[in-house]
């Protein structure tokens, strides 16, 4: 369970171009459910996602993950939490160019010191599961948008995290691929993972599999269905 209390994030604080991206958010995200953060661009949902995912620290407020305060942790411990808890699927996928799909998938596991052979097998199994077995050795810049996203999802899953976080997952996908993504998201939730998605795409926000819809505007939550 992830709990947010009075969380704010201010960029360039104290300067003339100071921006309040998130202004006082209280939110509880339950385990094992698929939650969607909805809102127009600039509403602060991506920033909120980076705060929840421990990619950045809030300016004020508290974030707890399973009761543990993470908002005040120094960078090193934050990394530890991040790596244990979250798998990220970024809007632009953020794959490392020049490396093969397989090399990208194993990346999050490298600093953990797991044995090479089982790691490669597990990564390949994930790619195979997403229908990318024949793409495993291809450099990622040669993949299509949908393939790249599935590589990114496989990478998010390699360390078997409890929470999968996806930022605008359908921004660069066509209609058919959206359905494919939703199927994967549902499968993940069914396997017991917490799934957290930001989107302003009605194909996502109105999908039947969404457990909870949280609407944001101007850095605040305006509507949160239970």
């Amino acid at each position: 369970m992830i709990t947010l209390e009075g969380v704010t994030k201010v960029f360039d604080q104290g300067r003339h171009n100071q921006v309040t991206a998130v202004g006082g958010v209280d939110l509880v995200i339950a385990d094992g459910r698929l939650t969607v953060l909805r809102g127009p661009s600039g509403s602060g949902k991506t920033t909120l996602l980076t705060l929840i995912g421990c990619l950045a620290r809030p300016t004020t407020g508290r974030i707890r993950i399973d009761g543990e305060m993470v908002s005040g942790l120094p960078e090193r411990f934050l990394t530890e939490v991040r790596r244990r808890t979250f798998g990220f699927v970024f809007q632009k996928f953020n794959l490392i160019r020049g490396l093969s799909a397989l090399d990208n998938v194993v990346l999050p596991a490298l600093p953990l010191g797991v044995a090479h052979r089982p790691l490669v097998e597990r990564a390949f199994a994930l790619l195979d599961h997403f229908g990318l077995a024949d793409r495993a050795e291809l450099a990622v810049e040669n993949l299509s948008g949908g393939e790249a996203q599935r590589v990114a999802i496989a990478r998010a899953l390699i360390n078997d995290p409890a929470v999968i976080v996806a930022d605008e997952p359908t921004a660069s996908l066509d209609g058919a691929r959206v359905g494919q993504f939703l199927a994967i998201a549902e499968e993940l939730r069914r396997s017991g993972k917490t799934v957290l998605i930001t989107s302003h795409d009605p194909r996502i926000t109105e999908a039947a599999i969404v457990d909870r819809l949280v609407t944001m505007a101007d850095g605040r939550i305006v509507e949160a269905a239970p």
Binding site: T79, R82, F86, F90
Partner: peptide, 19 residues
């Protein structure tokens, strides 16, 4: 910019600074 982005990605997917 490319190298900075890569470092950011590695950090985001769970690498520590020392890694």
């Amino acid at each position: 910019a490319e190298e900075k982005r890569e470092i950011g990605i590695l950090k985001a997917i769970g690498w520590e600074s020392r890694d």
